[in-house]
Design a binder for these strands. Structure first.
Lengths: 132, 132
DNA sequence: GTCCTTGCAAATAGTTTGCAAGCCG
DNA sequence: CGGCTTGCAAACTATTTGCAAGGAC
């Protein structure tokens, strides 16, 4: 891990990410940080997001359509994305509850499987209400 | 499904995709089609890939890093990506062997889960040899 | 003072689109 | 012929990077 100095922009980014459950995009982070530091640049936001992801302080979520979102909770957990409103939500399931699928995937495969990524989709609670 | 006319470029793209297990990127498809039709444009390749994916003739694979690859086998199946050489390989496991994880993910979640995407990673058979 | 970090702008990668010409049916 | 498809180039989106000025320690 390389030497790193304090920066209020970085602090502000991580604070914002830890304060929300929205799983914002880089651009949404940028919009929010600009409320506090109006001169912050998008480049700075990207540089810090990459840094935080590298350090393991923030998760980078690649959604099913290739778009990218960030999560201030670095603990391993699974995500759900609503096919109606595109919101990304955390799932409560314990992370180890899917550990066995690596073994299932290994059957008949000659390489070594070390892990997986998974993303669940469907209709979220809010959108479900519109279908009554 | 809209009216569609034959085009040798499209035919050539689907033939190429069905002939390989490499899971090529759009650019790799372009390179290969250019061997047959040197004047084909990248725009045409993208237009046809999107069309084929829409029609369900081809799968679009979003890799863990957000890069995109295409698969000429449209049957549902899971993929493995090697963390050493980045190759993408098909897994033999029956697609229904993971159907139960949607139920696991549903516990404690108020929305409806309709499905999931999953991608396995590790070291492929070829790369494994280099570690003996 | 050193050198990490920033703002700005330009550069890049991947993909899409407008348009006139070309090809299928 | 009508209209889907193409090649070409320009446009676009998301992200990265070079550089001189600013800030942390």
């Amino acid at each position: 891990m390389k030497i790193q100095k304090y920066s209020r922009q970085r602090e502000s980014i991580i604070n914002y990410l830890k304060s929300t459950k929205e799983h914002p995009t880089a651009d949404t982070v940028y919009m929010n940080i600009r409320n506090i530091y109006p001169n912050v640049s998008l480049g700075t936001v990207y540089r810090n997001l990459n840094l935080l992801v590298e350090q393991g302080d923030v998760l980078k979520i690649i959604c099913g359509d290739g778009s990218v979102r960030y999560d201030g909770n670095p603990m391993q957990h699974y995500h759900f994305i609503c096919t109606d409103c595109s919101s990304v939500q955390d799932l409560e399931m314990p992370p180890e509850s899917l550990k066995h699928i690596d073994l299932i995937a290994s059957t008949g495969f000659e390489g070594d499987i070390h892990g997986h990524t998974a993303l669940f989709y469907g209709r979220c609670f809010e959108c479900k209400k519109n279908y009554l």
